[in-house]
């Protein structure tokens, strides 16, 4: 095991896959000589050269389309979009082409492409650069959407995403890039399956479901609740599509209470989807309706106090958890 940052774990996954499979190549803005806006591709241009680490103009629709074409013809492109906010100009390529080609070509041609892109907020990047748009893509049949919360998961899931034969939107997180964690050594050929959630912490009184950075918030909240005598179970979804409902359901059947936390907007969000699935699968297990906590439904403000107020930070998640517990007659000591 090595102690790596999330950023380094991603880089190592890319490096190993470039090494392992010469069909794999990277493409994106400033990912070569400049080593990427967030330095995820640092050293790779030097190591693999401009043919396999390709610089592109600011032309998301163009280079995502180029990636789709390359994938259809047998390559394994890993396309970086600087942040998820810029994917909007390539939406037609992602939703109408990448997601549909296997279906429209009768299953004969697939698009084994990964789009890596960070989302999230919290760095005063304001309304246009602070979004969590992953649920837009999780809505679309034909796409897979992965959103790891820690370095080891980022490493194992990115390798699986590159090896997957269908398009995967791989959602990273700006605030997670510097988070460190243990990552298996390269020789272990560690991968994590797509579409499987993970119980990040076991508990009995409440399930908190989250993905990406919000998992860290949920774990911190679980620690706080433990001081009041409540054991929260934290389920890290890891993948939003396919959604591992079974793991969530198993947890909720145990705890009877569920809070879904997400950084994006609640309306039509991950919590909305899960609440419906849980309501159906766990109806007789619930002690209270599934609860959601999410970002304020506003464009992200620039002013720091307003940004903090708009985010679903630990305090907000904790308050939602305690309110749900109180609704079930569980009032902890202070």
């Amino acid at each position: 095991m090595a102690e790596l940052t999330y950023r380094e774990a991603l880089r190592r996954a890319l490096d190993e896959e470039l090494e392992r499979d010469d069909r794999v190549f990277l493409m994106g803005e400033e990912i070569g000589r400049f080593e990427g806006s967030y330095k995820v591709t640092a050293g790779l241009w030097a190591k693999y050269g401009p043919k396999r680490v390709r610089e592109t103009p600011i032309s998301e629709e163009g280079f995502v389309g180029a990636g789709i074409g390359a994938a259809m013809l047998g390559l394994r492109p890993v396309v970086e979009i600087m942040t998820i906010n810029f994917i909007l100009v390539a939406q037609d390529m992602v939703v109408n082409h990448a997601a549909k080609i296997r279906y429209m070509f009768g299953g004969k041609v697939g698009v084994p492409m990964v789009i890596r892109t960070p989302g999230g907020a919290g760095a005063q990047l304001t309304a246009q650069h602070s979004q969590s748009l992953e649920v837009w893509f999780a809505h679309v049949p034909g796409l897979k959407v992965v959103a790891p919360s820690n370095p080891a998961d980022a490493y194992g899931l990115l390798k699986s995403a590159i090896r997957d034969d269908d398009p995967v939107l791989f959602v990273e997180n700006l605030v997670l890039y510097n988070v460190t964690g243990s990552v298996p050594e390269p020789e272990e050929d560690f991968t994590l399956p797509l579409g499987r959630a993970h119980v990040a912490r076991e508990g009995t009184d409440l399930t908190i479901v989250a993905h990406s950075y919000t998992v860290r918030r949920a774990l911190a909240v679980a620690d706080r609740l433990a001081q009041s005598g409540f054991e929260a179970e934290v389920v890290d979804l890891r993948t939003l599509r396919p959604l591992d409902v079974d793991t969530v359901v198993e947890s909720v059947r145990k705890t009877n209470r569920v809070l879904i936390a997400e950084e994006g907007w609640a309306t039509y969000g991950v919590g909305a989807e899960l609440a419906a699935r849980i309501g159906r699968a766990c109806f007789d297990d619930l002690d209270a309706p599934p609860e959601r906590v999410a970002g304020a439904e506003v464009p992200m403000p620039y002013a720091k106090p307003l940004e903090l107020a708009a985010l679903a930070l630990e305090d907000k998640v904790e308050a939602a958890a305690r309110s749900l517990l109180a609704e079930c007659g569980l009032v902890g000591s202070a």
Binding site: D205, S228, G229, F230, E231, N256, D287, A288, E327, C328, G329, L330, V331, G332, S333
Partner: peptide, 19 residues
């Protein structure tokens, strides 16, 4: 809710610190 039933059934270990 669940804790009420647990109390009624005399369950132990209900994490209600005050009550």
């Amino acid at each position: 809710v669940k804790v009420d039933v647990e109390r009624a059934l005399g369950a132990e270990g209900v994490p209600v610190a005050q009550t």
